Amino acid sequence: MNKSTINFCPVPIEQQPINEYEKLKESWLFDWGTLAIGQYSQKIAWVCFWSAILVIPLAMSVFVPQHDWFHGFLSSLVGICLLTGIFISRIYLGWQYIKDRLKSDRIFYEESGWYDGQTWIKPTGMLNRDRLVASYEIEPILARFHKTYGLLGMAISLSSLIWLIIG
């Protein structure tokens, strides 16, 4: 085999997993996973703030603040955590999709439209490179989201437990 045969890749450039990764890494919402922990925390705090603006009035309409403010607070906390979790899930799923494409030994791509999909088997060099990127670049991002989910889950669990204890 000559060198041009080895380097040939029929997958359009924008559908190659490594290029999808680069594009995702630079996009507005998905770049949150690549931010320093302080900047990431600020972004999550903003999502929590806007979730609170949506959730607190709803909780106040169900639990009258003068009579049952504590249950209103607990239900607001759960709502904020759920909305934040849903928002983060969108980012997480985008990163997970790219990780799966990078780790796969095959690339599914579309030549000109949705009706003519093809599959191409990655050469060993490309597969090794893609798997390294997935392991060392994307898995830490996903681990950060797992920790965020854990914190949100603990807040929901603690709120629910307090609700059950207080009655």
Rank of each mutant, 00 (worst) to 15 (best):
141 I>S: 09
126 M>G: 03
99 K>W: 09
72 G>W: 12
66 Q>F: 01
156 I>K: 05
29 L>P: 00
161 L>H: 02
123 P>V: 13
89 S>N: 15
116 D>V: 04
41 S>N: 08
27 S>H: 02
50 W>L: 07
101 R>A: 14
119 T>V: 13
153 G>A: 06
71 H>F: 13
74 L>F: 08
63 F>L: 02
62 V>H: 03
43 K>C: 08
109 Y>N: 10
123 P>L: 05
42 Q>R: 04
114 W>P: 12
73 F>T: 10
140 P>E: 08
69 W>N: 04
145 F>R: 05
131 R>E: 14
23 K>E: 08
123 P>T: 12
59 A>Q: 06
86 I>K: 13
96 Q>K: 12
127 L>C: 14
96 Q>P: 02
28 W>A: 09
134 A>F: 07
155 A>N: 06
61 S>L: 07
94 G>D: 10
48 C>K: 11
75 S>M: 14
104 S>W: 09
30 F>L: 03
155 A>I: 02
132 L>S: 12
36 A>S: 09
155 A>R: 01
41 S>E: 11
71 H>M: 12
100 D>C: 04
55 V>G: 04
19 N>Y: 05
101 R>C: 14
79 G>L: 11
51 S>C: 08
122 K>V: 13
131 R>P: 08
78 V>G: 09
44 I>M: 10
161 L>C: 04
71 H>I: 04
93 L>K: 07
123 P>C: 12
31 D>P: 00
78 V>D: 11
59 A>R: 06
52 A>N: 06
108 F>Y: 11
42 Q>P: 00
110 E>K: 09
19 N>W: 04
127 L>W: 15
32 W>P: 00
78 V>I: 15
124 T>F: 10
108 F>D: 15
152 L>P: 01
157 S>Q: 02
93 L>N: 12
75 S>N: 09
49 F>A: 10
72 G>I: 06
162 I>P: 00
112 S>T: 11
32 W>C: 05
98 I>G: 06
21 Y>N: 05
34 T>F: 02
95 W>D: 11
41 S>Q: 05
74 L>Q: 07
131 R>A: 11
129 R>E: 12
83 L>Q: 14
80 I>H: 11
33 G>K: 09
130 D>S: 13
31 D>T: 07
147 K>S: 05
138 I>F: 07
85 G>D: 13
105 D>C: 13
95 W>S: 08
65 P>G: 01
57 P>E: 02
141 I>A: 08
142 L>Y: 10
118 Q>P: 03
113 G>T: 15
69 W>Y: 03
151 L>P: 00
28 W>Q: 06
68 D>E: 03
83 L>A: 12
44 I>C: 02
88 I>S: 10
66 Q>N: 00
27 S>E: 12
89 S>D: 14
65 P>T: 00
157 S>L: 13
24 L>I: 05
149 Y>K: 07
22 E>I: 06
40 Y>P: 00
34 T>N: 06
36 A>C: 01
112 S>H: 08
70 F>H: 04
83 L>G: 13
87 F>W: 13
82 L>T: 15
128 N>W: 10
115 Y>P: 02
107 I>S: 15
136 Y>S: 14
33 G>Y: 01
83 L>P: 03
61 S>G: 10
41 S>H: 01
127 L>M: 15
90 R>Q: 15
56 I>N: 05
112 S>P: 02
